Computed example of a mutant assay.
Amino acid sequence: MIPKVAPLILLVPLLTFPSGTDAVESARVVIPQHVTTGENVTMVCEFDLREDFDPKNLGVYWQCITDNKVESVCSYYNGTDSLEKQAPRFRNRTTLAVNPWRAILTLQNATLLDSGIFQCTIKYKWPASDSDVLSVSARYQPLQLTVRYEDGTAVLQCVTEGGFPLGKVIWYYQDGRRLNQTWSVMNYTRSDRTFLIKSTLTLKSEEETSVCCSVIHRALKENITSCLKIPGKRYKC
């Protein structure tokens, strides 16, 4: 589980707040634990006001912090959205719904680059802030499992790509027995930050058997699997 991040109060002086007549008591950000690329993400900023709500006196400021870089996601004040300072990568991807208790940010078509700390600052005379971490994952494509034969030995290769973070490769017999053989794994990082995984297993057996390759996606708690039948007669000299 991703630990809760302490509010980044140091960011508050960077913002310019409208004047107001009442104070906000607290703020709390809630972000989904698991998000995959292409999904729409709903982030909720809950807050408590000490007095009656007047939208014209409310300021809402969502920011994203990645690699020590602070970017404006969206803002709301004077009763309307304000997108003048919105970072280019968030343009046409955000909607903000505001009521007396919540400021709900929807981020469309999540990408791996959206992973980071999202901070919500509520201003109703005095500011209150909270933040949480958004972690975006990518699912791996279906496995491509192939075999070739060299001198009575089966050489199996398991390939998948497009996933993030890096998956774990496991080989085993289809009936669940563990393989005693060792296998090699080569990982490549693509330009979009996703991984290409290639794993090779060398297997020698005189009996027909079925072998499976699985790639475990720990963040999403799921795995993809492909199995292949190896005819034992190919190994006989």
Rank of each mutant, 00 (worst) to 15 (best):
V41Y: 01
D132V: 00
L11D: 14
H34A: 15
L113R: 12
S131T: 15
L220C: 06
T202L: 04
V133A: 04
S82R: 02
T153D: 07
E207K: 14
A110N: 01
N180D: 09
V211S: 07
L112W: 05
V215A: 14
C158R: 06
K125R: 07
W183N: 10
N68E: 08
V133N: 01
Q119P: 02
L15A: 09
I224R: 03
R178A: 15
V35N: 03
F90N: 02
K229C: 07
A27K: 08
Q141A: 12
S226F: 04
W126P: 03
E46K: 14
V159P: 00
S75P: 00
L83W: 14
A219N: 03
V73N: 02
T36K: 06
P3L: 07
D52M: 06
K229H: 12
W101M: 08
K229M: 10
L83S: 11
G116H: 02
T95L: 07
K123N: 15
L203W: 12
L113V: 13
L134W: 00
R89W: 02
N40Q: 08
N187Y: 15
R177D: 11
V35Y: 07
P88G: 01
T182S: 11
S184E: 05
V215Q: 08
D192A: 09
T106N: 09
T21H: 02
K236I: 10
D151V: 10
Y173Q: 04
G116T: 09
L8K: 03
K221E: 14
E207T: 13
Y140P: 06
E84M: 13
T225K: 00
I117Q: 09
K168D: 14
S129Q: 06
C227A: 13
F164P: 00
G79I: 11
P32Y: 04
V30A: 10
R148E: 14
P100W: 11
P3D: 05
N180F: 10
L83H: 09
W126Q: 13
Q141F: 10
C227Q: 09
K204I: 13
Q86L: 11
K204Y: 14
T106F: 01
V70A: 15
P18V: 10
V70D: 13
L15G: 01
L49F: 01
I117W: 06
T121N: 06
C213K: 02
L96G: 07
V44P: 01
V5H: 06
R91A: 12
K123M: 12
P231Y: 13
T146S: 12
P127R: 02
E150Q: 13
N180G: 11
E208Q: 14
K56G: 14
G176A: 10
K229G: 10
R177K: 14
W101R: 13
T146G: 09
S19R: 04
V12Y: 00
V185A: 11
W171S: 14
S184T: 13
E46Q: 15
D192R: 08
S75D: 04
S135Y: 11
I117V: 15
I2Y: 13
E46C: 10
